[in-house]
Design a protein around this nucleic acid. Structure first.
Lengths: 121, 121
DNA sequence: TTCACCTGTCAGTCTCAACTTACACATGAA
DNA sequence: TTCATGTGTAAGTTGAGACTGACAGGTGAA
């Protein structure tokens, strides 16, 4: 979970930055749940929940596994993946330096320019 | 920057979770810049940049101030606000507990339920 | 007066994520 | 066979955010 590039960081932030998905995380914090049960608890349609879970899984926030219940039914369980991300200027800059989708094509982003008053150009 | 509720956390995450705004943060990390100059550096239209900056400001990530340059021109400078957010299951749960826009109407979200195999209902 | 800067905002278009409805397909139990 | 349960996906609609272009205003300098 350390040193993600800007692409991964973006996926992570976009995944967590949504009310429904925060609720999913909150619910899964109590332990693994299968999709239909989770949908019932949240009052959300199953296809919609699938989309959110897919997004969370791609971002590495949840892990899904197909499990066979005692009575032979296939249940898709999801559980929280451990994650811990520090978010400040330094970590964002570090991610940007690692490149990724949104990295500027040219290295025009040197730090330390500070020109709050001098005529810029 | 500590103990934000789910609403604030969501605003923060949604603000940072966007490629363009990550680039804005990256650029502002080098020091304050006024809008037109920033727009030029990023190759972004000014109205669009305004929207992003507005969003970042509402989330408390940047601070804008109108400044008068030496030759009497009004320049709108933006600079990074200090921020440091830890993102893991605990901090998200803590934010959810503080309530906010996405908080569930009923307190159905107690942790510690763990029913991965027992018949849920 | 005109030019080259700047701020600020409005009215659009467009794209994509979010969301709904509906289907096909399994299983075990009545 | 039918019902209630589950998975998985393929349509569609919709709504919000992202983005563009054009405007109105201000300044100082040529």
């Amino acid at each position: 979970m350390q040193a993600m590039n800007s692409e991964e960081l973006l996926a992570f932030l976009a995944a967590v930055g949504h009310a429904q998905r925060i609720r999913i995380i909150t619910e899964l914090a109590g332990g693994p749940l299968y999709v239909s049960e989770l949908a019932r608890r949240l009052g959300v349609s199953r296809p919609l929940l699938y989309m959110h879970l897919e997004r969370l899984e791609k971002a590495g926030l949840v892990i899904g596994r197909l499990e066979l219940s005692d009575d032979g039914k296939a249940l898709k369980y999801f559980e929280l993946a451990p994650f811990d991300v520090q978010l400040n200027v330094d970590t964002i800059l570090a991610a940007a330096r690692l490149g990724g989708a949104d990295a500027p094509p040219d290295g025009t982003g040197e730090a330390g320019k500070h020109s709050p008053k001098g005529t810029p150009q």
